[in-house]
C-alpha cells in the first residue's frame, strides 16, 4: 500500500488491461476510501466494467497492482480470491440471477459456498433480513422470471448483501430501469452505505444516479483516470473531456 492513502480499502495502481491490440485500461490509478461511494464515470465501452472485474479477480490485467482490503489481488491463489470475494459484493449489470433457482435458492447459494458451516436457521434469518432490506420479503419462493426488472435488481442487491460485504461493486445499477425505479435503486444503495458502512465503487453513466450516489467521481478517459473530484467540482469544470458528461 506504499504510496497510497492508508484509509483506502481498494488501491488500484497503474492498471493496464488489453484485449488483443486494444488497450482498454492504460495506467489507471485510483483509491477507494473506507465508507465512501466512488463513481467511475466513462463512456460506453471505455472499460469501466472491465475495471471492477479486474478488482474482483474475474479478469486478469496485463500489469499494475490491485490492493483490496490489504491483499494483493493479483498474487492471490484460488482460496485467497474466495476469501476476498466473501468480503466484496458484486452487483452485475444484468443482475445475473440464476434462472433455474428460486429467490431463496439464489440468496442461499453464496452463503452455502462461502460459509460452509452455517445452519439452516441462521441462513433463513440472513435471507429474510436481506429481502426485507430491499422490501421484497414476499418473493422468497418466486422464480426470477416472475419478477420485474426492478425487482430482479433488488433481489440481486439482496444477494450481494447476504454476506455482509465491506465493499460493494455496482456495475451500472440503473441501466435498463425506468427513471423512478432507477431512483429507488440509487436511494437504496445510499441507504445500504449508511446502514452497513460499506464502501462502494459504482460504475455508471446515468448522471442522476451519479449525482445522488457519488461522494467522489473518477472520470475514465482513454483508459486512464482523467480526474477525481466531487460532483459539484467536476460539473464546474470547463474541460471538454469532463463536461461532456454533465451537458
Amino acid at each position: 500500500m506504499e504510496g497510497h492513502n492508508p484509509d483506502a480499502v481498494i488501491a488500484i495502481d497503474r492498471l493496464v488491461k488489453k484485449f488483443g491490440e486494444k488497450v482498454v485500461l492504460n495506467e489507471f490509478t485510483v483509491d477507494l476510501k473506507r465508507g465512501e461511494n466512488l463513481v467511475v464515470l466513462g463512456r460506453s465501452g471505455s472499460g469501466k466494467s472491465v475495471l471492477i472485474k479486474c478488482v474482483i479477480g474475474l479478469m486478469r490485467p496485463e500489469s499494475g497492482t490491485i490492493n483490496v482490503l490489504g491483499e494483493d489481488v493479483l498474487s492471490l491463489d484460488h482460496d485467497g480470491l474466495d476469501n476476498i470475494r466473501s468480503r466484496v459484493g458484486f452487483l452485475f449489470q444484468s443482475n445475473a440471477l440464476y434462472d433455474s433457482m428460486t429467490v431463496k435458492q439464489n440468496l442461499e447459494f453464496p452463503m452455502r459456498r462461502h460459509l460452509k458451516n452455517i445452519d439452516y436457521k441462521e441462513s433463513m434469518d440472513r435471507i429474510m433480513d436481506a429481502l426485507e432490506n430491499v422490501g421484497l420479503a414476499h418473493t422468497l419462493n418466486m422464480m426470477p422470471s416472475e419478477l420485474s426488472g426492478g425487482m430482479q435488481k433488488r433481489i440481486a442487491l439482496a444477494r450481494t448483501l447476504i454476506l455482509n460485504p465491506e465493499i460493494i461493486l455496482y456495475d451500472e445499477p440503473t441501466t435498463g430501469l425506468d427513471p423512478i425505479t432507477g431512483k429507488e435503486i440509487t436511494l437504496l444503495m445510499k441507504e445500504i452505505q449508511e446502514k452497513y458502512k460499506t464502501s462502494s465503487i459504482i460504475i455508471s453513466h446515468d448522471m442522476k444516479c451519479v449525482k445522488r450516489a457519488a461522494d467522489r467521481i473518477a472520470v475514465l478517459v482513454n483508459g486512464s483516470c482523467y480526474a477525481v473530484d466531487t460532483y459539484d467540482n467536476l460539473k464546474r469544470s470547463s474541460d471538454p473531456n469532463i463536461n461532456q458528461f454533465f451537458e
Binding site: 472485474k53 474482483i56 474475474l58 484460488h78 474466495d82 470475494r85 466473501s86 458484486f90 452485475f92 449489470q93 444484468s94 443482475n95 445475473a96 440471477l97 440464476y98 434462472d99 447459494f109 453464496p110 459456498r113 462461502h114
Partner: peptide
C-alpha cells in the same frame, strides 16, 4: 451460453464456486 451472456457464470465464480 445464456448463463455466460447474462453473467451468471461470473456470478457463480464471485459466489465462491468453481
Amino acid at each position: 451460453g445464456s448463463m455466460k451472456v447474462t453473467e451468471q457464470i461470473d456470478a457463480m465464480e464471485v459466489s465462491g464456486t468453481n
